[in-house]
Amino acid sequence: MKNKRRTFTLGFKILAASMSIHCKRVCDVAGELNISARTLQHWKKLYQEGRFTIKKTSNEIYHKNELQKLRKQIKELEIERDIIKKAQNIFSGSG
């Protein structure tokens, strides 16, 4: 029977790496978290190098692009609104 490979969240990896840096030795932290010291040493190295980042999913990228389009559209509509207000003031004789 094969052992199932465990996966860990990015948050767990960051927490484990920072514990090994700030609190205790790598082997002690690894024992407490029930992971191998070699794995924790690797995570610690990545953490210190600043290589732990959250990868953006295509859905997040889509939403970011959509937000940029909507902000641009809002600016254009605000400009149009201001032009209409100015024209209204001119034609009503109060400008």
Rank of each mutant, 00 (worst) to 15 (best):
Q41R: 09
N3Y: 04
K75Q: 13
S18E: 13
H22W: 02
R25F: 10
F52Y: 03
K13M: 08
G95T: 01
D28E: 12
I79Y: 04
E78V: 05
L70P: 05
I21D: 11
N34T: 08
R38K: 11
K2L: 07
V26W: 00
R71V: 04
I83S: 15
Q88K: 12
G11W: 00
L46I: 00
M19W: 04
E49K: 06
A16M: 06
E76Q: 10
I83A: 15
F12V: 03
K72T: 13
K2P: 12
I61E: 08
K44V: 04
G11E: 09
R5V: 10
E78K: 08
D82W: 00
K72C: 13
S94C: 09
K45D: 11
G11Y: 00
N65T: 02
K75T: 12
T9S: 14
M1R: 05
R51Q: 14
L15C: 07
E78S: 10
S92I: 02
H22M: 07
E76K: 08
R38A: 15
F8P: 04
M19T: 05
L33G: 08
R5A: 15
I35K: 02
S92W: 00
L10K: 03
K13L: 01
K64Q: 15
L77G: 11
A30C: 09
R51N: 14
I74C: 13
L15N: 04
R6C: 14
T53H: 10
E76V: 04
N34L: 12
N65I: 02
S94W: 00
A37T: 09
G93E: 04
K64T: 13
R71P: 02
K86A: 14
K64G: 15
E66T: 07
R38P: 08
R51T: 07
D28T: 05
W43P: 03
H22I: 02
E49P: 02
I79K: 10
G95P: 02
F12C: 09
H42I: 03
K13N: 04
G95C: 06
G95D: 08
S20E: 05
E32Y: 04
K45T: 07
I74E: 13
F52H: 08
T9L: 03
L40S: 04
K13Y: 01
A17H: 00
T53E: 12
I74W: 01
K2I: 03
F8G: 05
I35W: 01
K24N: 12
Y62V: 07
R25A: 15
L15S: 10
K2C: 09
N89T: 10
K13Q: 09
K64E: 15
G11Q: 05
S58G: 13
K72I: 06
E78R: 06
E80R: 12
H63G: 10
V26T: 12
G95K: 03
I83G: 14
T9K: 03
F91M: 13
K86I: 06
L77D: 14
L10Q: 06
G50K: 01
A87F: 06
I74L: 14
K55E: 14
D28R: 01
R51L: 14
I14N: 07
N89L: 15
M1I: 05
A37Y: 01
E76H: 04
E76Y: 02
Q68W: 02
R25P: 12
K64C: 14
K86H: 07
R38G: 15
I35C: 09
C27T: 10
I74A: 14
I14G: 09
N59H: 07
Y62Q: 11
K85L: 13
M19Q: 11
K55Y: 06
S20D: 07
